[in-house]
Design a protein around this nucleic acid. Structure first.
Lengths: 249, 249
DNA sequence: CGTGAACTTGATATGCCTCAATACGAGTGG
DNA sequence: CCACTCGTATTGAGGCATATCAAGTTCACG
């Protein structure tokens, strides 16, 4: 599980932050962050282990991160996914140990900022503070929505929701019929995200495909064929969901 | 579902903030909050509906709040529970509409603070800002932990976790054998919290009782008889969990 | 003593998991 | 170019955990 996977085709994306959470052309807050604490990691590497002493804050420049927790039997739940432009504070109430494990879903580049520096930055840069606040808020909204489906929804509803969420976020807000996008996760990982086994994730995707809701060009390259149907299964209204889960620009 | 339930026996708790999240003797930040925006509500009332325009921040003085979301078929998931001393910002990324519905589990008294005032307070009172930050962090930790069990755990594991969490939080950190405490929720509500049907919640509690893990003095009056067993099922270490999910004092 | 809400218990249904076998596709080495 | 291999996706069969439906029971309150 912890081995270095070979860099995937998708990892060398031509435009690293063209599909960021904020659809921006430059890394966020590059002036204050870029040169000081910049880190890069390969797809598949683990940045931070559950229970480990946590360093501080992350600002993701490019790539996708998974925030996960595991049970003793090895079953894993991906609690959230961080996209380019996203912020991450993987620290629990005690300000010290991390509650989660962070894994790079693709090659990533990010800034790792010690707590002290981060506090100072927040004071000095109100725009950063506002962005961080919006990011936290969006994360809570997303998690609430996913919790609802994890607890009380069918497999269909949570998969549909995840597909909508990731499309909305990865394309910076676009969610329309015929829209093609890529989810840089295996079905196993998407299953961990949706609280499903990889097998059932596969079956669910197949069913969507048979019902002409979804087209799968290649593994994990999605095309939404019937947005109304997908939105209905997910029980969402795309523009409303967008406002709730992607931070305002 | 939305009717005013009669005030329950448990609602008139003798010491309103004796079992607060921070185990404090006075309402938190009473000097700045108490007189200005104080509100009281009866058990069972709904403070804020999903999708409604959201007012601002809440600081809970006494009583318990449930933060919930519902599916179209009426099934509900309680996403988090707020205890005395807790903060709540039920607003999504767009800073405007609420993503959740808030229900009073008991009679409650709280401060409802408009966004502008709240921002100002945070600037003026670093201690409040710190407390608010800690509260958000703790909430994220709790939600992550519950998401893991919602997605990948058994009914036993999430019920055990919820029992531990609510004991830890409501007693301000205590979690030990023979500890008696009260959860002011029906089994239906606890089921909504754990992603289970009321019937299965009942059966699970019965099983814990038969296995001498739990004693149920009266409905929802819990006594933990075998903490090691309960902690093992929940897959937690009580002191560690405490640090992660209850904000530092 | 009647009423209604919560809780309890039983019977049945089903959605999802697990195990297991197979197919596919990309990279590797001959 | 082909054979090999390893990760990933697919498909089938069977089992189990949890939901649902349906009767009770208990208890607080009027």
């Amino acid at each position: 599980m912890n081995h270095q996977r070979p860099c995937r085709e998708d990892a060398r994306d031509p435009a690293p932050w063209s599909n960021g959470a904020q659809a921006i052309g430059v890394p966020p807050f590059a002036d204050v962050l870029a040169d000081t604490h910049r880190v890069m990691r390969r797809a598949g590497s683990t940045l931070k282990l559950e229970g480990e002493v946590a360093g501080g804050h992350y600002v993701l420049f490019s790539g996708w991160l998974a925030v996960a927790k595991s049970m003793l039997d090895g079953h894993r739940q991906i609690v959230d996914v961080v996209l380019p432009g996203g912020f991450l504070d993987a620290v629990s109430a005690d300000l010290c140990t991390s509650v989660v494990e962070i894994e790079a879903l693709t090659d990533v580049s990010y800034a790792a900022i010690p707590r002290q520096d981060w506090q100072r930055l927040l004071r000095e840069r109100p725009d950063l503070a506002r962005a961080s606040d919006g990011s936290v808020r969006a994360a809570m909204s997303r998690m609430s929505a996913r919790m609802l489906r994890l607890g009380k929804g069918s497999a269909d509803s949570i998969v549909a929701f995840a597909l909508c969420e990731l499309c909305l976020r990865s394309t910076g807000g676009g969610l329309s019929e015929g829209w093609a996008y890529h989810i840089p996760m295996t079905q196993q990982q998407l299953g961990d995200f949706c609280g499903l086994s990889a097998v059932h994730m596969c079956r669910t995707l197949q069913r969507f495909r048979r019902d002409d809701i979804l087209e799968l060009r290649a593994p994990m390259r999605m095309v939404i064929r019937d947005l109304p149907a997908l939105a209905a299964i997910a029980e969402i209204d795309p523009p409303v969901l967008r406002q709730q889960i992607v931070p305002a620009a």
